[in-house]
Structures are given as C-alpha cells and as structure tokens.
C-alpha cells in the first residue's frame, strides 16, 4: 500500500471540505478500496474516513418510498423489515452477493461504486485501459469467459460486479449526492453508470469528490420479486449472469440483468415483450450484443434464466 494521510470526518461538511485536498478519496466500508490499495490499483494520498458522518438510517419518504442512507451496511439493508416486505428483490440481490463478513462492512454507496473484478484489471502486469488509460485491453484476446457481452467497447469488456445495483436498476432508484461546494442533486440510476467507450476509467457520472448521501426508492410497486444468480459455485462468487425481476399479475414486468455488461443491463422498451416470452424479450434486451467466443454462452444463459423465472411465475 502506498503511504497516505488519514482523516476521520465527523460531519458531512468536514468530509466535503477535506475532499478538495489533492489525492483525496472517501473511505466508507473499505472492503473494495483497501483491497485495491494493497494491489496499488488505487493510490490515494489522503483518505477521508466517512464512516461516522451519519447517513446510516433507512427512512420513509413522503411519497411512500424509502431513503436509504449511503452508509447503511449491506446486511442491515437486506434485513430491514420494510425492504424484506416491499422491496424483496433488493434483499435477495444483496444476500446473493459477497459473504456475511463483507456484507456487515460494505455500504450502500460503496456497493454502487465497487470496481470490476476483471482479472486483467487486478493484474498490474497486464495492460488495462480502466486501470491505466491508453495501455490497451488484455481481456479482449484473453480469458473472457466471465466478462461483458453487451455495452462494452474495443477499449474494455469489464462487467460491473454488483448484485445490489441490478435490483436498484429494476426498482428505478435515485442516487442523492452532495458536491464539495455544498450543492445537492439527484441522479436516476439509469443515468448513473457510464458505458466505457474510449474512457473505461470513467465509470459513473459523479463529479470529482461528489459524495453519495443516500439512495431513494420510489413507493413499492407490488408484484412478485425474483433475483436469480447463476455462478460457478453455490455461494460467494460473482455472477456469470444474474436476473432481477418484478413480475405483475397482468403478465407485464421489469427486468434487469447483471454479469453481462459494464452496468446493470435494462431496456424498459424491451419490457413490452415480456408477455411474448423469454425468447422475444431477451433478443430485444440483448440487441447489439458483441460477445467473445468464450462468453457467447452468456446470451443463452440469460434467455434460459429469464425463461425459468417467467415459467415459474406463471405456473
């Protein structure tokens, strides 16, 4: 780990001011950031520990939804009674991710911002446009079985690893932030993640040192909530493919897919085809996919996972 100075922020204002220091980075749970710092993939020179500035509650909003504090731990979010009852897809997605130890430490905002698990991003001996912009991508001609099939580019085929974010995409979550100048804004999750293009190191639309304060969930929409994760072992593994779905009695639904793209993959205009079955819906959802020879199986896997979910729901 490279040396850094450390500051324990007591208030959001203190954190915002500290963020203007050169090389500063926010530290929340740290389960992803510290791992990357040990490998010198992240090299902040000043860490602002925001673990004690609040934002750790889940509160009802005036329109019947929930405001989830950015620092609510994954375990607490998954176990919250309101989330279990009205947003089961979110509980299910969280519980499908990581381990009990990690969920106790990892935060809501940190989960949204976690970096890819592409093995070439982690191997500092390899070129990687995300880690070292302009150095190239070793993954495209490398072992790409785990990697993206859609939304990727000639510069990067990394996937976004989060399960939670897939559920947030289905739930139309809105991310609330504060900038270092104190101004606040709301970013719908559909506008939160960037596709890599030629700049895979830019992953979100957050500005420099903009701090996530909470995530808003709209009022519950009802329906049957499902999160189905397909992976190489039964627990504690990243998804090959995951499907988050909310299905309604009239045959309509909302579906996002994880493990296939640089962000949770959803196309609301494809959702009109859910009634027509998995084949029609999936071919529209995955339109424009550009898999490698090693990961083309993911397209079949997505369709079969969705087919299974739809058939089970209708039986």
């Amino acid at each position: 780990m490279k040396p850094f100075t450390y500051e324990r922020a007591e208030t959001p204002a203190q954190a915002a001011i500290a963020a203007s220091k050169p090389g500063a980075k926010f530290l929340a749970g740290g389960t992803n950031l510290l791992d990357l710092m040990k490998l010198q993939i992240e090299t902040p020179t000043h860490l602002i520990d925001i673990g004690r500035i609040g934002f750790d509650k889940i509160q009802p909003t005036s329109d019947g939804g929930l405001r989830i504090g950015a620092l609510v731990r994954n375990t607490d979010l998954a176990a919250d009674e309101r989330v279990r009852k009205d947003y089961a897809i979110l509980s299910r997605a969280l519980l499908a991710g990581a381990s009990g130890q990690l969920r106790n430490k990892a935060t809501t905002s940190g989960n949204l911002l976690q970096r890819t698990r592409c093995p070439y991003f982690y191997d500092t001996n390899q070129p990687c446009n995300k880690r070292a912009p302009g150095s190239g991508c070793a993954a495209i001609a490398g072992f790409s079985r785990q990697l993206a099939v859609i939304g990727c580019s000639d510069a990067c085929i990394a996937t976004h690893p989060s399960d939670m974010a897939v559920a947030m995409m289905v739930l139309d979550a809105v991310i609330e932030t504060v900038k270092p100048d104190g101004s606040m804004r709301q970013i719908p999750i559909t506008g939160f993640y960037r596709l890599p293009g030629n700049t895979p190191h830019l992953e979100t639309t957050l500005e420099k040192n903009e701090l996530i304060t909470s995530v808003l969930l709209p009022a519950p929409v009802g329906g049957v909530h499902v999160y189905h994760k397909v992976r190489d072992r039964a627990s504690y593994a990243f998804a090959l493919v995951s499907v988050g779905a909310i299905l309604f009695k009239d045959g309509s639904g909302k579906i996002a897919v994880g493990g296939v793209a640089p962000k949770p993959w959803r196309n609301p205009s494809a959702e009109e085809l859910i009634r027509s079955g998995a084949k029609e819906f999936t071919s529209k959802l995955m339109e424009g996919a550009r898999p490698t020879s090693e990961n083309a199986f993911k397209l079949i896997l997505v369709e079969r996972a969705i087919d299974g979910i739809l058939k089970e729901d209708r039986s």
Binding site: Y6, R8, L27, G30, K38, L47, D49, T75, L102, K105
Partner: peptide, 29 residues
C-alpha cells in the same frame, strides 16, 4: 489471503463479524 476471500482473519466488531484484513485499524475508533 489478506484480500477478504478466505475468512481466516474474521473477528467480531461490536458483535458483528468482519474480515479484519479489509479494515484499517484507524476505522475502529
């Protein structure tokens, strides 16, 4: 492993288990 993958470093913090390898000591005031 020192990377949160094996669990050998599990300890309880305020009664909850975490990977002590993925936490700075300074985070535990």
């Amino acid at each position: 492993c020192d990377h949160g993958q094996c669990g050998a470093c599990t300890v309880l913090v305020n009664g909850r288990r975490i990977n002590s390898c993925l936490s700075l000591a300074l985070q535990h005031q």
